[in-house]
Design a protein around this nucleic acid. Sequence first.
DNA 1: TAGATTATCTATTAAACAAATAGATTAAAC
DNA 2: GTTTAATCTATTTGTTTAATAGATAATCTA
Lengths: 143, 143
Amino acid sequence: MLSKKAKYGLQAIIFLAKEEKKKKGPIQISELAEKENIPKKFLEIILLEMRKQGILHSKMGAGGGYSLGKSADKISIGQIVRLLDGPLAQVSCLSKTAYHKCDECKDEKTCEIRKVMKKVHESTARILDRTSLADAVKGKVNI
Amino acid sequence: MLSKKAKYGLQAIIFLAKEEKKKKGPIQISELAEKENIPKKFLEIILLEMRKQGILHSKMGAGGGYSLGKSADKISIGQIVRLLDGPLAQVSCLSKTAYHKCDECKDEKTCEIRKVMKKVHESTARILDRTSLADAVKGKVNI
DNA sequence: TAGATTATCTATTAAACAAATAGATTAAAC
DNA sequence: GTTTAATCTATTTGTTTAATAGATAATCTA
């Protein structure tokens, strides 16, 4: 399951991507929180994390707010989910972004669990990394 | 990520499936715990849950222990994971076994997050539901 | 330059969940 | 009736999730 954090983050960035098209400058946290029904303070934390990764851009002060940090077709859904919820892999020995040998595992080569989850991970990563924010907004999912 | 519970459970049932072939009667929790390096008391809980679902069978008293509750080709990996870690779906509105409307969601039909995660869920469920315990033990994964 | 606006930082909290442990009880075999 | 092994009841510890509060820093406008 996605955490609320990841869900809120996705909702927010999708909202921003849609606004981007209207060319009306940055959106304030409070507006975003209200429109998407997300607890404001929690949203602050989430947006900040995305900004630190460069997928969002922010501006302080009057007339400030949040906007996309790069073009929506350069942001993948996978990147967002990994950032907010951690690795996509079901077992850490499969993660490319955060590899870590499983504690109990005797032999990665013969581990049956790993073998099954490898397929799951591959198909998940494939979909999420190939589908950009721009695609998602259009309702297009690349398999 | 799989929880330790699910990982332990899979390790244990795979072990049992392999033993089944040797036709040597049930395996005791303590042996299982030792061979697979799983905390015994924790393993008890896990095995019990699987027994209650009918995928394991147990026998008390001397000479007792655990064995598969049905043939390994009638147990899917998906069933085990769902049992121990809950629904496979990334968002509850996609789960067939535990459907639940998302709190914040305005319209399921147009939700972009749902649309992407639907594909992920479909491919995950496909793999895990089509791969039986017997397959997994053979190192075979059905896509 | 003062005041308003808006993001950012530091800190804290409550509740839920994950992971594990301890001890008593029940069922079966011999 | 003693031994073996699963089962039940209860508790504990630590971590994570989700959220809130209040102070601070940057930017705009009048």
